[in-house]
């Protein structure tokens, strides 16, 4: 009776170790690289000329593989839809009163700077490390902090769920609209400089054609989406008296 779980764990441990060793052997079999080859070399060599962006990762995400990014932001949208639908039946919602006075003051001082940091990361995504995904995540972190420290009703009064919803949809529409401009110009969906977007002076804030706009769109989507996910989950956990009703019937 007692020996079986123990045996199971030992077996699982050895199996994991075996698989880990095999994984490491597989990794070690990869030839060591001295230089970048393949499409990456092309990107590194020509990205700044073809897109006007200094950040090569941003250029790949929002120019060369922008279609990929569109599909990927749809995944976030689907996850937000799923979570909101799962938790949609809770009407009554009691917010927690938040943490202590010191924590509230501290976050009150820090929050504007955090929002500014997120904005800078999004807007300078094409000339420095950063971009829509990273900045959007930082923005979602601000709302999460507000939610935890001040209670979720405070957070929802400042950033109402409706606003998040429209921000997220607006980000998706902006992304697709920018893509359709390329289609109207006859150069293909989500094409950048070839569709007539100005390249600007390299390294300035207004450069790289569509990349800053797509960064803003993705930042809106990711920030609003992640904070909406967190809000629907904490709304669920805040409702303490709901644990009793809604039993295993149905």
């Amino acid at each position: 009776m007692n020996i079986r779980p123990f045996l199971f764990r030992i077996t699982a441990l050895f199996l994991c170790a075996f698989l880990g060793v095999m994984l490491f052997r597989g990794i070690a079999a990869m030839p060591p690289k001295e230089s970048v080859t393949g499409p990456a070399a092309h990107y590194l060599e020509r990205a700044s000329r073809e897109t006007g962006a200094r950040n090569v990762v941003g250029a790949i995400l929002f120019d060369y593989r922008a279609f990929d990014t569109l599909g990927e932001s749809t995944v976030i949208f689907t996850a937000v839809c799923g979570i909101s639908m799962l938790f949609s039946r809770r009407k009554f919602h009691r917010s927690s009163s938040g943490l202590s006075f010191i924590a509230k003051r501290g976050i009150g001082i820090m929050a504007p700077f955090l929002i500014m940091y997120a904005t800078v990361i999004i807007l300078f995504g094409h000339i420095s490390p950063g971009g829509g995904f990273q900045g959007g995540t930082i923005f979602a972190t601000v709302t999460v902090l507000l939610c935890v420290v001040f209670g979720s009703s405070f957070e929802s009064s400042y950033f109402p769920p409706k606003t998040k919803e429209s921000l997220e949809s607006g980000g998706a529409l902006l992304f697709c609209g920018i893509g359709l401009v390329g289609l109207a110009a006859g150069t293909g969906f989500l094409s950048n400089l070839s569709a007539g977007f100005p390249a600007g002076r390299e390294g300035s804030l207004l450069s790289a054609g569509t990349i800053p706009l797509l960064n803003i769109a993705v930042g809106m989507k990711v920030g609003a989406g992640l904070s909406a996910i967190f809000y629907s989950m904490i709304k669920m956990l805040d409702t303490t008296n709901d644990y009793r009703e809604g039993g295993p019937i149905r």
């Binding site: 499409p39 590194l44 995944v75």
Partner: peptide, 16 residues
């Protein structure tokens, strides 16, 4: 410069 493609891939994979 290091290979920028894995960075782009992981960036999307993290959010997913």
């Amino acid at each position: 410069a290091v290979n920028p493609l894995p960075h782009a891939f992981t960036l999307t994979a993290i959010v997913i």
